[in-house]
Simulated assay, not measured.
Amino acid sequence: MFEALFSLIAATGLLLGSPGPAPLALAASGATFGVKKSTGFLVGILLGLCVAIVGATAGVAALYSAWPEARLAVQICGALYIGYIAIKIATASVLDRDQSTAARPPSLLDGFIFNLLNPKAYAAFLAIFSQFLLPIEESGFSYVATGLVCLVVAAVVDFTWLCLGGSLRPLFHKPKQARVIRVSFALLMVAAVLFVFLR
C-alpha cells in the first residue's frame, strides 16, 4: 500500500505540477497580483479540479470516445478561456506605490471555469485512475481515496506555483521587467494550450 501511495503522489505531482496552463496561470497571477489576492483564483482552480476528478471517474473518456466532437468543443472552449486569462494577466497595470493594481485579479469563478475547461486536468486524471488507483478492496472507496490524495497533492503543487509567482512580485515595480514577465507567462500559457492541441 505504501508503494502504491508513493507512486500515486509522485505521478500526481509530476502530471499536475508540470508547467501547464493552471500552474502557469497561478504563477502569473501570484506575480502580478500577489499571493493573497490570488487565493480565490487558487480555490476556484482546485474546485474545478474536483469536477475533473469526478469526471474522470464517471467516464469522461467513454463520452469523448462516443462523441469526439464533444472533446474538441471542450478543448476549444478551454483554449479560449485560458487565452482570456492570459490576456487579463498580460495587460494588467503596473503596480503603484501602494502595491495595488488597477486591474482585478482572476476570481474564484475564473479559476473554477479555467480548470473545468482545462483538457490537461481530465487527461491527467484519466491516466492516474487507470494506472495508479490505490489497491483498496472496496472499489468505490478506492476511487474516493485516490481522488482525495490527488486533490491534496494538487493543492500543495498549485500553492507552490502561486508562491513562486509571488516571489517575482517585487520586480513588478519596474514597468519594463513587469511587462516582460507578464507577457512571458501569458505566452507560456498559450503555448501550453497549443501543445495539447498539436499532440
Score class of each variant (00 low, 15 high):
N118A: 00
G166Y: 08
S18L: 03
T39Q: 11
V54N: 05
C77A: 15
I82G: 03
I53D: 04
K176V: 12
K36Q: 13
A121I: 04
R97D: 11
P68Q: 14
A145H: 04
L187T: 12
L187W: 08
P23I: 03
F41P: 03
G140E: 07
E138M: 10
L5V: 15
L109S: 10
W161A: 04
A62L: 14
R182M: 08
A10F: 13
I53V: 15
V190I: 15
K174L: 10
L5P: 11
S18I: 00
N118Q: 04
R97G: 11
V153K: 04
A124Y: 14
L198P: 02
L108G: 03
A66T: 15
G59A: 10
K174C: 06
A22P: 10
S65C: 07
A31C: 12
A191Y: 12
S7R: 09
P135S: 05
F195I: 10
A178R: 02
F141D: 05
L188D: 08
L198E: 03
F6K: 11
A145S: 12
K176Q: 13
Y81Q: 00
G78I: 01
F114D: 01
F2L: 13
S38D: 04
L171A: 10
D98F: 13
I87P: 06
L14H: 05
A92N: 11
V74C: 09
F6T: 13
T32W: 03
S93Q: 07
L46C: 07
S139R: 12
A52W: 07
E137Y: 06
F185L: 05
A186H: 11
A121F: 06
P68E: 12
R179W: 09
S130F: 05
G111L: 01
A73I: 09
A11D: 07
E69W: 14
S184C: 10
L194R: 05
V54F: 14
L16S: 01
S93I: 06
F129R: 13
A66Q: 15
I53T: 12
A58R: 07
R169L: 00
C50P: 01
A86Y: 00
I82E: 00
R97Q: 10
L109N: 05
C77E: 03
P68L: 08
E138D: 11
L151W: 15
F125N: 04
I9F: 04
A70N: 10
Q75A: 15
L8V: 11
Y81V: 00
C50Q: 05
L5S: 15
S130W: 08
V153G: 05
K37F: 07
I76P: 02
A70W: 13
L95K: 09
L148P: 05
I128K: 04
V153F: 09
G165K: 06
G165I: 06
F197W: 14
I85L: 07
V183N: 09
V149S: 06
P135A: 02
A4M: 11
V156P: 04
P68M: 11
Y143T: 02
C77T: 10
T91Q: 13
A28R: 01
K88Y: 02
G147N: 07
G78M: 01
D110H: 07
L80K: 06
F132M: 05
